[in-house]
Amino acid sequence: MSNTAQTDTTRADIAVSLRNVCKMFYQKQPAQNPRDLFRPRRKAVAALDDVTFSVKRGEFIAYAGPNGAGKSTTIKLLGGMLAQNAGEVSVLGMSPLRDRIAIMRRLGVLFGNRTELWWDHPVSASYRWKRKVWDIPRGDFEEMESLVLDLLDIRPFYNTFARELSLGQRMRADLGMLLLHRPELILLDEPTLGLDVLAKRRMIGFLKELNARDGTTIIVTSHDMDDLEEMARRILLISHGKIAFDGDFSALRGELGLTRKAVVCFADGSRREIPYGDTKTVLRGIAELDGVSDVSFTQASLEEGLAALFERWKAESERTASEI
């Protein structure tokens, strides 16, 4: 399954570009003979295998895949925390490893399972710290501070110590801090991890607004497909280190064979499910039916389709491994 989106863009329009990027990890294996005690055996695992894609400025990208597919590795490569084994990585036209400092002035990275807040200080102290370290002019800082405090509803716990915050409060405080220097590109690794429904809605709404209002480029990873579909317009699916799909969500539904259905209920209590592609055609068809009491339209869950797909990938990978 491959539907790599071709983009005709100039270099200046590209926020992120990966070209033939490979990243290997080496996992230690249990010793099987005395020599292994001194030179432990290692199993090479390809976290990214010849990955190529680019993201235009202003795009909102969902980056999804099963556990261990290479999502966090990609985010770390883009953030300059890891070096690729081969290929080229470019962020805002620069190399994350060579131009780390210049990139970090324009980039924001957030990992859902870690915090940039100072643990033993109130959130407000972390925000002041950020202003000094990023050298943000006072006026700009105050404007952004006020904006994120209101939009993310941080004021009620702005003077609370980071270690005393709930997970949802901590994530919002982290996201707010991330935005203080007005990053042009935001990388979010599982930002909705562990959040309740309300906190999640707030986070998603804020990110969408940020993307629409300021044209901020956002790349977000998550396991929650509904969240991703609501936020992003384009989805990159990664599996075993390879990009398996690159396109929009409706194209993904088509690829997964997820059809839309009209559920027609009749006056005699019976019901009929009619799969359809074109809305006008199905509406005309329903209008011609006798005894219709109710009609509803359903969409097959993307999550279900993807679960089946991930299962298939897993089986294929295990089969390949056993053949080798």
Binding site: T73, G80, L82, A83, N113, R114, T115, W119
Partner: peptide
């Protein structure tokens, strides 16, 4: 440091990251 960015770290301690 070169080794760190080449191989990464899977020992992240979230309980106060500068401790």
């Amino acid at each position: 440091l070169k080794y760190y960015v080449k191989y990464g770290s899977n020992r992240y301690n979230a309980g106060g990251h500068r401790r």
